[in-house]
Amino acid sequence: MVSDSNMDLINLTKDGNVTKRILREGAGVSSEKGNSVCVHYESFLQETNTKFDSTRDRKAEFTFNLNSGKVVEAWEIAIPTMKVGEKAEIFCTSDYGYGDEGRTHIVPRKANLRFEVELLGFWENATSAAERIASAEKKKLEGNQLFKTGLTEEALFAYRKARDYIKDLWNCEPEELEASRILIVTIQLNIAACYLKLKNYEFTIEVCKRALDRDCTNIKGYYRLAQAYLELGEFDQCIEFTKLGLEVSFKNQKSISLKQI
Rank of each mutant, 00 (worst) to 15 (best):
5 S>I: 14
5 S>K: 15
6 N>A: 15
7 M>S: 15
12 L>K: 03
13 T>K: 14
20 K>Y: 00
21 R>W: 01
26 G>S: 04
27 A>G: 07
29 V>P: 02
32 E>D: 04
33 K>S: 14
40 H>W: 13
41 Y>K: 11
43 S>V: 05
46 Q>L: 12
46 Q>I: 06
48 T>A: 10
52 F>E: 11
75 W>T: 09
76 E>W: 01
79 I>L: 13
81 T>H: 02
82 M>I: 06
84 V>E: 09
87 K>F: 03
87 K>T: 15
91 F>E: 00
92 C>I: 02
93 T>S: 15
99 G>K: 13
104 T>N: 08
105 H>Y: 03
107 V>I: 13
112 N>A: 10
114 R>D: 00
117 V>I: 11
117 V>Q: 03
117 V>E: 04
119 L>K: 02
120 L>H: 08
121 G>V: 04
121 G>C: 05
129 A>C: 11
137 E>A: 09
139 K>F: 14
139 K>H: 15
142 E>N: 14
146 L>P: 03
146 L>A: 12
150 G>Q: 05
151 L>H: 11
153 E>D: 15
155 A>R: 01
155 A>N: 03
158 A>W: 05
168 D>Y: 02
170 W>P: 00
171 N>W: 01
181 R>D: 06
193 A>M: 01
193 A>E: 04
198 L>S: 07
202 E>M: 13
223 Y>G: 00
225 L>V: 13
232 L>Y: 07
233 G>K: 10
233 G>D: 12
235 F>L: 15
242 T>L: 06
242 T>P: 00
244 L>F: 12
246 L>H: 06
253 Q>Y: 00
254 K>S: 12
254 K>A: 11
256 I>S: 01
257 S>K: 07
257 S>F: 01
258 L>G: 00
259 K>D: 04
259 K>F: 00
